Simulated scan of single mutants.
Amino acid sequence: MKATRDWFGDGLVDVAAKHENVVVVNCDLASATKTSKFKEAYPDRFFEVGIAEANGIGVAAGMAQDGFRPFVASFGHFLTGKFLEIFQSVGLNDSGVVLVGTHAGLAIGKDGPTQMGLRDLALMRTLHNVEVLQPADGVETRKMLEHVVSHDRPTYLRLCRQPQREVHDEDYRFQFGHPDVVRPGEDVVIFTMGGMVPVVLDAVDVLADTGLRPTVVNASSLPMDHEATNELLGAYRHVLVFEDHFVKGGLIDEVGRIVLDLDRHLRFHAWGVDDYGQAASPEELYERYELDATGVANRIRVATSAASADSDRGKDTQR
């Protein structure tokens, strides 16, 4: 198993071999963001700006205006912390910059909330012309990179630190915005993304003996395609969302807005990080926020049990 930041480091070298306009603007974190491999392969296309994300964003925006496809890499928390520069230099100017935010979610562990990428989705979703991508595994990381270098739109690529197993095979075809069903089921549909995809799959396995068979959807690119998502939701009565991000502003809000626009009622439950984050080991943090397999399985069980009880009460009333 490898982290998606590792797959990114390998894949970036591969796409750069085919696209000479791909360059890297680094913020003194080449080892952590895995852009060091690019530096070794293409030293003349690697630009170090030091601990200066705001400067790096400006440099990259200028390069994009001159026809390059620059990747600016730093921790997601630090990079999106320069939101003013992203808004004005990248978003407002429609500059073809790829903002690469690593160390998404709680997995940075003991470094704590001052370095955790927990609010980055909320920020980047406000920019209407920015594509937001978060791969679930190595296969999807490579497919996403091929997509990213095929156009010049502003992009935010969100990557994880924790190792993740493959959930796709080599035949997987990435379609921007389309819900990717990684586990078909019935009655209940669960949306998640990135490092939470294998966790939710493990949680569903834990529930196998209960008879629950939720569908698991990898929502790896935002904004989601409303038509495709609406079509998917037509087969379900209950929607759950789990994300390694603040409960406000991220995937929960993305899916929630789509559910609200439907012409029928669906039950909706969602979980994420409900405070600023804490400092502890990754295992302790995911357990604390009930975002490990055990916690997610329990949340699914409780939510679906409550829904069944409400449904039974409704039948009694009708009788």
Score class of each variant (00 low, 15 high):
92 L>F: 11
101 G>M: 12
105 G>R: 08
87 F>W: 14
120 D>V: 05
108 I>A: 01
94 D>N: 15
111 D>A: 03
105 G>L: 07
84 L>H: 13
109 G>E: 07
99 L>G: 02
103 H>R: 08
119 R>W: 14
88 Q>H: 15
121 L>G: 06
101 G>K: 04
101 G>P: 05
109 G>H: 02
87 F>S: 10
116 M>P: 00
91 G>R: 11
116 M>V: 04
107 A>H: 03
100 V>R: 02
89 S>K: 11
107 A>M: 14
81 G>S: 14
77 H>Q: 13
105 G>A: 05
86 I>K: 07
94 D>P: 01
97 V>K: 11
82 K>R: 12
88 Q>P: 00
98 V>Q: 11
90 V>I: 10
116 M>K: 06
106 L>I: 08
83 F>D: 10
89 S>F: 12
117 G>D: 05
87 F>G: 06
92 L>E: 11
86 I>Q: 02
86 I>F: 11
91 G>L: 01
97 V>A: 11
100 V>E: 05
121 L>Q: 04
77 H>M: 12
111 D>R: 02
118 L>K: 00
100 V>I: 11
107 A>V: 10
106 L>S: 07
109 G>N: 11
77 H>A: 14
93 N>K: 13
117 G>S: 02
117 G>W: 05
88 Q>G: 00
121 L>V: 08
97 V>C: 07
80 T>S: 06
80 T>Q: 02
84 L>P: 07
85 E>C: 06
108 I>L: 14
85 E>Y: 09
82 K>W: 12
